[in-house]
């Protein structure tokens, strides 16, 4: 009988593609770019598939790959933005901080790892430990990147650090 690696790869892809797409979409906010990230991730995964063990263990591995694909892309874009704008610290926006595009634009101005940390923790609801595993860094680094990222994001959105971020809800 043949090695079943291709079949197992296809089974794995079918099983995980929706979740990968969703994570990619939350990371970048653009459905087309999200599909590109997933496409690249699945390509890398297939390139390494013969050397990867059981499917169950691949989950964290493939999400790490996806985050890296995102970071690689953002690092290139990030430098471009900085060189072109010349100002890494734009003034606080006076637009509505509850508006998706406004928040996304502000998030995109953060360093890529801080973007990834905030999205994984607060949109993908992943615990600090898991984010640390995905980014291959310590939990302490995740926490400090979270703190820096949030401070920066609030500044960009003009949200006071001590007031509730979105004040519409009542406690």
């Amino acid at each position: 009988m043949p090695e079943r690696t291709d079949r197992d790869y296809l089974a794995f892809v079918h099983a995980r593609v929706a979740e990968l797409r969703r994570t990619a979409y939350l990371l970048c906010g653009d459905p087309h770019q999200a599909d590109d990230f997933v496409q690249e991730t699945l390509t890398k995964l297939y390139a390494r598939w013969p050397r990867i063990g059981r499917v169950e263990n691949v989950d964290a591995y493939v999400h790490t790959m996806l985050v890296r694909v995102f970071l690689d892309d953002r690092r290139r874009g990030w430098w471009k933005v900085r060189l072109l704008s010349g100002s890494p610290e734009p003034p606080p926006a006076d637009q509505n901080p509850e508006d998706g595009p406004v928040v996304r634009a502000a998030l995109a101005k953060l360093p890529p790892r801080q973007q990834a940390v905030l999205v994984l923790r607060y949109l993908c609801d992943k615990p600090v430990r898991e984010v640390a595993d995905l980014l291959r860094c310590s939990e302490g680094t995740v926490k400090s990147q979270t703190a820096h990222g949030l401070t920066r994001l609030r500044a960009l959105l003009g949200v006071p650090a001590l007031a509730p971020a979105v004040s519409r809800e009542k406690r």
Partner: peptide, 21 residues
């Protein structure tokens, strides 16, 4: 507070996947 700050970004990718296995 962080979750609420980022909540406007929640959502699902729309349309069919353009992923070519």
């Amino acid at each position: 507070r962080a979750v609420r700050l980022l909540t406007p970004l929640r959502g699902e990718p729309e349309g069919p996947a353009r992923i070519d296995v």
